[in-house]
Design a protein around this nucleic acid. Structure first.
Lengths: 338, 338
DNA sequence: CTGTTAGCGCTTTCAG
DNA sequence: CTGAAAGCGCTAACAG
């Protein structure tokens, strides 16, 4: 076993008294036309010298790095981390590496990361897009580097996109409230940026379901804004003479805000307020009361995203399309029957 | 802007009518002795051609990838993800990339990842070691690739190691129980693998604190085992005539198990059982009751780990040592005063 | 079945 | 201030 000095394929070749290319053949498992003796010689030399091949050099030559980049809009969402885990599992099986970057909902950061990863010659991208970098996505695609989008739709781009059936996710929530006798149902969501698909789709689903169920709601019932402003907004809603008896939380982060608020104001769940959250959270079952949630099939989404990307990378490409995933309602005990 | 074909430094050189090396100078910000005219010419050519440099080639030449690898024993611990976030923040500032691998508490997987990352020529490692790969760590060190360990001590290795003062973490918990009048205090921990520092140190802290406080405990109060066996073990403990009134959860995962158990058995917190968890959890403040926790300064640990590693990589090395971090007790309402 | 040769795209002396 | 040339470690024809 060597210390310090890097040992290369030539060293192995010399030691085994063969040429570099023969060693290279060996490394790439092309034993077919190789003498058994040669093979063992090389094997031994590699062991003795403690040689390990330099991926960089190989990648440079092959123009392929066996590495993909993931750019996630906001790593703080449980959904993102679950999807990432699934992608990693899938990629590891095929010995492809994954580099994860968190754009922090900042298009400038996203752009920077895309450039960095391109410079690193990643073979493809899985992106949870911030939405404001269509030109950058186009440029990547123009270089024939495949992309798969997750969670958000980007218009006018021929790219596979996987996301929740958000409309139905919200509907599931509203229906459950209605079935349990609720009339005054509010929704809470992060800022309604039109570029962020799930947000407005989930709101849309809420509106549609409310209409279908013939429930009216004052505009204050659409509680939306930066996380830290939500507390004050909730305050206002709860001072309305027509107080909501139920709130649909459009993601895990807003759910946390509602929980914090209720705790601070000693609002008893579910007696004084019923809640349902879109996105599964780790503590849903152990919370008091157990939280009813609408789960995204994060694992399936991540796995499929990885498969699709890997297929495109390997040329097993098919037509690009949008894949919608059905939400799953997990009924627990945070909705009171009125 | 080009499509498909890769454009290289030579293309830029040609377009700008200078030599490759001049362009290289430009890319590396060595403008000092460069004609202003040349500089603008190159700048424009780069823009026009949509050129972006190939990191791989540069890395191959410079024998430096500006990439570090993180190998985490188990990504499911909230602590791990927090530390990783801190490392990433620190590295991003210096434009170094991070590749994260999850060993899943499996030494074989850890070994495989270390090899892969070495092949990728990472400049250094931050490892949450599984503990059973000392020879591999040595081999890496032998190649002059720096390592920093986090969370777990590896004997006989001259490597910076950052971890919690586990003994005192447990003590903080026990003391708080005792101050609140508890006599029958148990601890719950994952399997007591002697190679996994925090586990036995936390148990040790429990024992010491109990001794200091002159509290006795039957051996059943040391509840330890794989997560899925904990439910049954808790059952046994609660059938003891001397039932514990308090449990110290030695990490976030065991805390979850206790919470699940209490929920299943309708054990009321904190009236029928007081609990404190080591490791902060996202829902600690919103839980009912709010959970008292002992927090690790994950952000500081991660940041410092990155700094130390980057220093070693850049040769600004100092003596290797063990850094201990003080735990922080966050008192909330999951401990009842008897 | 094995060796020779020519690069992959970039950096880096060293001349000019 | 700029260019020529060598080479990082590996792969891939193409001969032999």
């Amino acid at each position: 076993m060597n210390t310090s000095k890097n040992i290369t394929i030539s060293d192995v070749a010399k030691h085994a008294k063969v040429s570099k290319s023969t060693v290279s053949q060996y490394l790439n498992q092309r034993f077919e036309y190789m003498g058994a003796a040669t093979r063992t010689k090389i094997e031994e030399s590699i062991k003795e010298l403690g040689y390990s091949p330099n991926f960089l050099a190989r990648s440079l030559k092959q123009k392929k790095t066996f590495t993909i980049g993931i750019i996630v809009a906001n790593i703080l969402h449980g959904f993102s981390t679950q999807v990432i885990r699934a992608i990693e599992d899938c990629c590891n099986e095929q010995d492809v590496h994954v580099i994860v970057c968190n754009a922090d909902d900042d298009p400038a950061k996203e752009k920077k990361y895309i450039s960095m990863l391109q410079a690193k010659q990643v073979d493809g991208f899985i992106i949870f897009p911030t939405g404001e970098n269509t030109d950058v996505y186009k440029q990547v695609l123009g270089r024939n580097i495949p992309i798969v989008f997750v969670d958000r739709l980007i218009p006018d781009l021929e790219v596979d996109t996987l996301l929740l059936d958000n409309i139905n996710a919200s509907k599931l929530g509203v229906y459950n409230f209605v079935e349990n006798g609720h009339e005054d149902i509010a929704i809470i969501t992060p800022p309604l940026n039109p570029l962020i698909t799930p947000r407005w789709e989930r709101l849309e689903g809420y509106k549609e379901a409310m209409a279908e169920c013939k429930k009216s709601y004052p505009e204050e019932y659409i509680i939306s804004g930066q996380l830290h402003t939500l507390h004050d907004q909730l305050d206002k809603v709860f001072q309305l003479k027509r107080r909501p008896t139920a709130i649909l939380c459009s993601n895990d982060l807003t759910l946390m805000e509602v929980l914090k608020y209720c705790k601070a104001k000693s609002i008893l769940l579910p007696d004084q307020l019923s809640i349902i959250g879109i996105d599964e959270v780790s503590f849903a079952t152990v919370y008091n009361p157990a939280l009813s949630t609408i789960k995204q099939p994060a694992f399936n989404i991540g796995g499929r995203a990885a498969e699709l990307l890997l297929d495109h990378i390997n040329g097993k490409s098919s037509e690009r399309k949008v894949y919608r995933y059905a939400p799953e309602f997990l009924e627990r005990t945070s909705v009171k029957t009125l």
